[in-house]
Design a protein around this nucleic acid. Structure first.
Length: 564
RNA sequence: GUGCCAGUAGCUCAGCUGGAUAGAGCAACGGACUUCUAAUCCGUCGGUCGGGUGUUCGAAUCAUCUCUGGCACGCCA
């Protein structure tokens, strides 16, 4: 068993189903089809520990008021062998269950048994999932959008691992195509400007204006001088790209590593072109009639795939588009490499691409659901209360590297993981830069440090916890104690929900609630110095809290300090 | 113009597949350290869930219309 919730759900389901059958046999209720019995935690404690709305769900089938149905069921409830002590009917027809405290104490036993594996759920059944995130163009430094996508993607990957999926973290290197062309042109212009003077060489309108481009050119010039001046432009660009691109990629690796992200795979787009996969995929689509030829270009047949319009795959000049490469890339993930599911994290500005990519998978016998795209809204930067543009081309954007230096990895990751992907995120640099304690990351870290400090202090006095079997857990009966255990019991549930909804930010918010529960407990109950048996029981609770907090902080890769 | 996302307390956001009296943090105000870390806790204040209509026993949640903000609609990625 991984979760007390699962156990309770099973128990309630069993009780309810048996009651329905009994009612049917007695002839007081008609036969009822129940697919699932929803069990939820009521908002109010007075409504019990768990409740179900099953009587309302089946009111159409029973053709009687929900409260009446609930009453008939209640008469047949058999609680033997369950945590349930009693049940009540309330409101429009809710059945509220009041449990014996054993379920909470068993939760502590479960945490002590599972330790750092507590919270794991088997949702994925070992399914192979590829999570691709950041995948920034290697033409410049990582920006805030990459930072958000990075935190969300990495944490989503962790959540899915915890939920029983076989996860691969992947970075797609856009080392081919138009962006690289522009990159080459920009480098060339900067290089020539160094030699011939800035006024003599015009800079391409749509080139990359960033400082980093100038730096690359200068570095090349410092190392190899003006050796490229007399070379043909094409060769000059190629050499400069070959010089600068690996440097950029290396830089991205380092920055992401400092950000706490380690990839399993760095996948090069160029290889898809070089080994002919892009061409093969387009040929296949053509063969199957999914393309049309128009104006000398090859287009994806939008009508046939249920799309609004056609999309160019191969330009009239014979160069494949990013779309063609992307189809080949996802084909590679789902077919060549056999992933069951590919999850992409894209900035919301790419949302128009989602339907196209999913549709483009179907000619290969793949299901649209095998490609999941998590869109995250873009980050808006504010500096001195003003909106700051974050375009690479203006070169004015704050880089992830700068952010890490200013606010640190923990705060950055926590901040980007606090809100759901779909909501806009205003990043106030002045606030984030401030090392103030209204930063929520400290709240959680402090709870962990407080626990460690407490355990340390007790140890210094020669007090260590006992095995849970030798502790009387029923001594835990203060409201703050019970509420804290309840909170801890939700962890596996939170993991499952985060995995199902692709919303890792749930866990960040959840761990704040755990910390809050602990702080409340800490202020209300003393661990040290009281009656020994009670102290032992509280030590178990404290240790369980430590396990859960550390567990989550490790999962989202934020430091769990033992002292602050 | 068409499409996607968002609109919930002064601010930033939760609210799971429709459920009971809509929540949290920050801000404001008032309290709590002789005892395990006050980077903490407790309390108060604060809402016509953008607006309308519909579906239903029941709607912040679903449908539809409308308003507002962001984004996308390229032989760019």
């Amino acid at each position: 068993m991984n979760s007390i919730f699962d156990k309770i759900r099973e128990q309630v389901h069993g009780i309810v189903e048996k009651a329905f059958r009994a009612c049917e046999e007695k002839g007081v209720l008609p036969p009822v089809q129940i697919s699932e019995v929803f069990v939820e935690v009521p908002r109010e404690r007075g409504f019990g520990d768990f409740s179900t709305n099953i009587a309302m769900q089946v009111s159409k089938q029973t053709r009687m008021p929900p409260r009446k149905t609930a009453e008939l069921l209640l008469n047949e409830f058999d609680y033997s062998g369950t945590y349930i002590e009693r049940a009540e009917i309330a409101g429009p027809g809710f059945i509220n269950f009041f449990l014996k405290r054993d379920w909470l104490y068993d939760c502590l036993r479960l945490i002590q048994e599972k330790k750092e594996r507590y919270g794991e759920v088997d949702l994925g059944k070992g399914l192979k999932v590829n999570v691709e995130f950041v995948s920034a163009n290697p033409t410049g430094p990582l920006h805030m959008g990459n930072a958000r996508g990075g935190a969300l993607g990495d944490c989503l990957a962790s959540v899915l691992e915890k939920a029983g999926y076989d996860v691969t973290r992947e970075f797609y290197i856009n080392d081919a195509g138009n962006q690289i062309e522009k990159f080459g042109m920009s480098l060339e212009a900067r290089y020539m400007q160094i030699i011939l003077g800035e006024d003599k060489v015009s800079f391409p309108e749509d080139g990359y204006h960033g400082e980093d481009i100038i730096q690359h050119a200068r570095d090349y010039y410092d190392m190899y001088g003006d050796s490229l001046v007399d070379k043909p432009s094409e060769e000059r660009r190629r050499i400069l790209v070959d010089f600068a691109l690996p440097r950029n990629i290396q830089k991205m690796r380092e920055t992401l590593s400092a950000y706490g992200i380690e990839y399993d795979v760095w996948f090069s787009e160029k290889t898809l072109h070089d080994n002919g996969e892009v061409k093969r995929v387009v040929d296949y689509l053509t063969e199957k009639g999914y393309t049309v030829e128009k104006d000398g270009a090859i287009w994806l047949n939008g009508e046939k795939l249920g799309l609004e319009k056609d999309e160019v795959l191969i330009r009239s000049n014979g160069v494949p588009t990013y779309m063609a490469a992307d189809i080949a890339y996802h084909y590679n993930k789902l077919v060549t490499r056999g992933f069951d599911l590919a999850i992409d994290l894209w900035g919301a500005d790419h949302h128009g691409h989602v339907a196209r990519m999913k549709a483009a998978m179907t000619p290969f016998g793949l299901k649209k659901e095998q490609l999941e795209v998590v869109l995250f809204q873009l980050v808006r930067l504010f500096r001195n209360g003003e909106l700051a543009r974050m375009s690479k081309r203006t070169g004015k954007a704050i880089a992830l590297e700068d952010l890490l230096e200013e606010v640190g990895r923990d705060a950055a990751r926590f901040f980007f993981n606090l809100k759901s992907a779909g909501s806009h995120l205003d990043f106030d640099l002045d606030l984030a830069v401030r090392q103030s304690n209204d930063n929520p990351v400290y709240y959680v870290q402090y709870a962990h440090a407080r626990i460690c400090s407490l355990l340390r202090k007790l140890k210094e006095e020669g007090i260590t916890g006992r095995p849970i079997d030798e502790v009387d857990l029923t001594l835990l009966k203060e409201n703050e104690e019970l509420e804290l255990i309840r909170k801890l019991s939700e962890y596996p549930e939170e993991v499952a929900l985060a995995a199902k909804t692709f919303e890792p930010s749930r866990l960040t918010r959840y761990v704040m609630e755990v910390a809050a529960g602990f702080h409340s407990f800490y202020n209300a109950c003393r661990v040290k110095g009281g009656e020994e048996e009670l102290m032992m029981a509280r030590l178990i609770l404290v240790d369980c809290t430590r396990i859960v907090i550390k567990n989550i902080l490790e999962l989202i890769r934020i430091d769990a300090p033992e002292r602050m």
